[in-house]
Amino acid sequence: MIKIENFRKNYGDIQAVRGMCFHVEKGELFGLIGPDGAGKTTLMRAICTLLVPDDGVIEVDGLNVREHVTEIRNLIGYMPQRFSLYQDLTVDENMQFFADIFEVPQDEREQRKKELYRFSHLEAFTKRKAGALSGGMKQKLALSCALIHTPKLLVLDEPTFGVDPVSRQEFWEILHEIQKGGTTILVSTAYMDEADQCDRIGLCFNGEIVGLDTPQKLKNDFKYMIYEIRNENLYRLRDFFARHPEIRTTQLFGDALHVSFLENPTESNWRQYEDEFGDTFTKRSQISPDIEDIFLDLMENHNG
């Protein structure tokens, strides 16, 4: 559905995207995961023909973004970052407007709206102004507007940004529903925990894709041991482990420290650590890596 080859984009001297390559298959739910400034938005805008690539090729449904601007725009449903709709228009007026400009035939409209209301549960709020909706409801309305013309490809730029966890979960369930209908979805997020919701993910960092696979495969392929270690003095603990050369990364996660080892430490190793540290570790256990561990590992590796 989407083919990206060696895509590059600069803003003046700043290289926003430096050579991304990946494909998104038809019907796939593909996630772009990465922090702000990783180049996710630039990439999505280029896919939507809003930015012209400086180098490389982007094709959407076999159409090159440089040449087939109008055709591509017709088959995409796009929800920009921090998209806020028309706050002074009601839910129904917003949907009506997008149905108008996307030329949804009159006789299909009611049916389509009914379907979208089934996802979004916004039916009770049709007469409410968009500005008076909660954050989660706004995002669902924005999604409904992007879906009103039944696009083949849905491009969502950080749709769950600033939305409460319950609404986020609900939003992802809606996306899975939409995917079942055959729509290809490209979604970006800065929340690492949302990666597992996607069929495949691309980890974006510093304008490059640093990891690309299914979330499960990425985790399976992670060859380092990660231990979760706790102590009252977390910061001293981190500094202590960071000094050791056999340790790959150290990362604070809430009240615990995640440490990845190049070699699996033995019991005697652990005793030695405790002796050197001068205190016992309240709790230590080997854990399976999550996407955030992998991402941080790739990120640090990338810097070095």
């Binding site: 805008r45 939507c48 023909t49 809003l50 109008t70 725009r73 017709n74 995409i76 796009y78 929800m79 920009p80 970052q81 921090r82 998209f83 806020s84 709709l85 028309y86 997008f98 400009i101 996307f102 030329e103 507007c145 992007a146």
Partner: peptide
């Protein structure tokens, strides 16, 4: 400013 221009541009308009 609202970012809605971005959305309208990705349409047949």
């Amino acid at each position: 400013e609202l970012g809605t221009m971005e959305q309208i541009l990705v349409s047949p308009v």
